[in-house]
């Protein structure tokens, strides 16, 4: 349940943090239109209509399809005119650095390449907002770094909302961060401000990096402040 979330994000990669049950999934579902708010809404540069590209945490592909067909078809499904789908697909594949694999079958891609293909599919219709839900989960370090580079590149010209559990994703990618705690936006600021707040918070738990322990203590504190 979300309540009183009033949040504006701009060009660049904005991180969305929050523990399980904080309302991240609900917020993403509202953004992509899978759920409707009881009140309020989502606006794009003042307009109630806008396009969104969404890469869910778990998605599937058809192994026998070609990479370029996957993205071109995604472009069509998301509203691109039939004649424009091929160009849209190649632009999106270039953006995620998969253009050299355009003719390859999806089944031949690595986990990281599949994740980038998902981003390309979400990007092909040139959305106003790109929403990525835990995109780096399950990738090995090299693949994760490659994907972060891609996301950072996209964020230079687009508005990207990155939902993640990984503090490293935030620190490497996000200019701004929002923290959801118990259904409300408990923090909205820059990554440096979040780090400062985390540093000033006594850490909790025994496992994890100092940042992770401090972050979890912060989330607990932000949630408690609400009460």
């Amino acid at each position: 349940m979300l309540s009183g979330v009033d949040w504006a994000i701009d060009t660049g990669v904005t991180g969305l943090l929050g523990p399980n049950g904080a309302g991240k999934t609900t917020l993403l579902n509202l953004l992509v239109g899978l759920e409707s708010p009881a009140s309020g809404g989502v606006r794009f540069q003042g307009s109630s209509s806008g396009t969104i590209g969404f890469v869910p945490q778990r998605f599937s592909l058809v192994g026998g399809m070609r990479v370029v067909d996957t993205v071109a078809y995604a472009a069509w499904v998301n509203g691109v005119d039939r004649r424009g789908c091929a160009d849209a697909a190649f632009r999106a594949l270039a953006a995620v650095r998969l253009d050299d694999l355009a003719d390859a079958r999806v089944r031949t891609l690595s986990g990281g390449q599949r994740q980038r293909l998902g981003v390309a599919a979400a990007l092909a219709h040139d959305p106003d907002l790109l929403v990525l839900d835990e995109p780096t989960v399950g990738l090995d370090p090299a693949q994760r770094m490659r994907l972060r580079e891609v996301i950072a590149d996209i964020g230079r010209t687009r508005t990207v909302l990155l939902s993640t559990h990984l503090i490293e994703d935030i620190s490497h990618l996000c200019q701004r961060v929002g923290v959801l705690a118990e259904g409300r936006l408990a923090f909205d600021g820059t990554e440096a401000e979040l780090t400062e707040l985390v540093d000033s918070t006594p850490s909790s738990g025994v496992l994890g990096s100092p940042f992770e322990r401090a972050y979890h203590a912060l989330v607990a504190k932000l949630g408690a402040d609400r009460d």
């Binding site: 992509v32 899978l34 969104i52 969404f54 890469v55 996957t70 995604a74 499904v77 509203g79």
Partner: peptide, 10 residues
Amino acid sequence: SRIFALPSAT
């Protein structure tokens, strides 16, 4: 679950 068949697609 297909990346090109999300219910949110136009």
